[in-house]
Write a protein that binds this DNA or RNA. Sequence first.
DNA 1: AGGTACATGTAAGCTGTTACATGATTTT
DNA 2: AAAATCATGTAACAGCTTACATGTACCT
Lengths: 181, 181
Amino acid sequence: MDTKTLCLGVLTQGDASGYEIKKAFEDGPFGHIQEIGFGSIYPALAQLLREELVTVTQYTQEGRPDKKIYSLTSAGRLLLLDALDEPTEPDKVRSDFLFRMMFAHLLSPSALEVMIDDRMAVLNAAIAGLQQAADDQFAPASETFINGYALAIYRAMADYIEDNRYQLVGASLMPERAVAE
Amino acid sequence: MDTKTLCLGVLTQGDASGYEIKKAFEDGPFGHIQEIGFGSIYPALAQLLREELVTVTQYTQEGRPDKKIYSLTSAGRLLLLDALDEPTEPDKVRSDFLFRMMFAHLLSPSALEVMIDDRMAVLNAAIAGLQQAADDQFAPASETFINGYALAIYRAMADYIEDNRYQLVGASLMPERAVAE
DNA sequence: AGGTACATGTAAGCTGTTACATGATTTT
DNA sequence: AAAATCATGTAACAGCTTACATGTACCT
């Protein structure tokens, strides 16, 4: 999925500015799909406009740049549909956390504990946020599905780490304990 | 994590060629951390060599290019340790599958079913592979931890999709059914 | 006969990130 | 008083992917 298609996708949910598209990828269900920054969004929107896949309406504002609200054209909507028909690429992950866990034996037990605690805090915050979002009865089926999916994964991660962290820390502590006992 | 640090990480597990490093990121526990291609590995290895973070031994082979086996230097090992101490970046995901699920209502029920079935097949294959790997009693703690973590996540995904796919397909089918009944 | 595994490397192109530029209003 | 929110955009840089280049050996 390139940035252009991602923007097209958000615009099916209603007209939006570049700023609002960015927010959709931070908070909403799109946040679980992938991240994008302004540096990708604004050039993508400009290109979509050139290709007439979106139109723009400019609202003058005082004290800040004009707000540009983009709308899908029917060509844009069709292009999204085409993109959806293309073969689905495998999910991609990049986990700095797992990389560190791979070298748990090279870390001090305290440094390891801090990393794991930090990770648990992030996961628990995400879980709390998603549980609140789950209460929304008016959300469309796709949003409910994606929020539930993300919640299931975060819970599985948190549960697994909680249940198995001592294996990892244990591998580091074991020699000290053997001496003490 | 840049490619250089990733290579350094694999080399702590023993000397390896660029080709073998690639394989480690396909099959082994590193496969759950992230993907890398030859086009990233070979230049990274060349640069690590220039910076004297690795050494190389060249084995002449007939009918194929010389095999270059890289080894960590102590400077390389120290640099990895430093990298491990730096703040952990948040995990990054890119899910083409979830993007499609977001637009389930724009897809035909049959196309949706195919996408979900394909996804389940990939997940079930990954789960089967990881269950086999879990039988290895001699694997280090970190590998066991990471394989178990990946297994827990894949199971959570598969279970969630199996339990909730009808919500998504239902949203698409409902109008037809209402007429039929 | 064709595909996969082995084995390394370069170059071009595409994508994405980060920093810079600008500045008011609202919240903590 | 500082930080966050609102709001857009460019330019430079870094990184990654893909294609190209080359060729043997084994398995189906």
